[in-house]
């Protein structure tokens, strides 16, 4: 069971009720902005006339932010959302640096800052079995572009739409495979080139491999390397000490040996 969202960009009117609902639900200060920051968990961007892209946390199936966080302040819940625990956070900002979508933001103006990002209304809605505030607002008051549901079901629906209207959509679901799959996915209108979306948040150069695998493939070597390296180092120490002892027994003092070394250089 993993809750997710599908945003059909062809259905988005750019009305912005999603962002307003988010502000209200998450008690975020200020007016709806144009860039993600500490007071905006989701924003709309005009890609070209009447085509809007909504940026928000993608709630990756294998989240990079959760993998890099040294204290586990970010974690993937069984229900799907990637949530944040301020009590654990030390403010190192590795999540911001590593996130492939540049989603986590920081309270730069505060002496004791928090990481700020969309948590898919985890505490107030997902836990109670309700849809996210943005999806609900979009369906009730907006264009109905944001669909909420099970990730599997949404993917089925997305592929059905592509199959039925091959001229309307680019022939793939953005977020189905990128970095191992994400919980927020997009259907992209075919009449807009993909490059235009790449600049605002749908990067094209991402591998399908989950990024946490990259560092884990290094870190999981540690238990293998340590015993090998320890044996080698201890062995070298034993060999070199033994050499000196042998020389002593033959009546050759190590000091003399050192002098010869120096002359040799």
């Amino acid at each position: 069971m993993s809750k997710a969202m599908l945003i059909d960009i062809t259905e988005c009117l750019g009305c912005g009720v999603c962002a307003e609902a988010c502000k209200k639900e998450q008690h975020l200060p200020g007016k709806v902005g144009e860039e993600l920051n500490y007071e905006n968990y989701t924003v709309l961007k005009e890609v070209e006339e009447d085509v809007y892209f909504r940026n928000l946390c993608r709630h990756c199936v294998e989240p990079t932010c959760a993998s890099v966080c040294p204290v586990g302040a970010l974690h993937k819940t069984p229900e799907g959302p990637v949530v944040y625990d301020y009590e654990l956070c030390i403010g190192c900002r590795y999540c911001m640096m590593a996130c492939p979508f540049n989603i986590p933001k920081y309270e730069w103006h505060k002496p004791i800052p928090r990481i700020r990002k969309c948590i898919m209304c985890y505490d107030t809605r997902i836990k109670k079995g309700l849809p996210t505030a943005c999806a609900e607002a979009c369906q009730n008051e907006g264009g109905g572009a944001t669909h909420f549901g099970e990730r599997k079901e949404l993917l089925k629906m997305a592929h059905k739409r592509i199959k039925e209207n091959p001229d309307k959509y680019h022939p793939f679901v953005y977020g189905e495979k990128e970095v191992g799959g994400t919980g927020v996915m997009f259907l992209i209108p075919k009449n807009v080139p993909l490059e235009k979306f790449a600049g605002v948040g749908l990067k094209r150069d991402l591998p399908n491999q989950p990024l946490p695998e990259l560092t884990w493939n290094v870190l999981n070597k540690i238990p293998i390397i340590v015993p090998v390296w320890a044996t080698f180092l201890t062995g070298m120490w034993w060999l070199n000490n033994r050499k000196i002892e042998v020389e002593e027994n033959n009546g050759v003092k190590p000091e003399k040996n050192e002098k010869e070394d120096k002359n040799g250089n």
């Binding site: 040294p70 302040a73 190192c92 946490p212 870190l219």
Partner: peptide, 8 residues
């Protein structure tokens, strides 16, 4: 608070 997946 451990997260042994993190290089940090």
């Amino acid at each position: 608070y451990w997260n042994h997946h993190s290089p940090m």
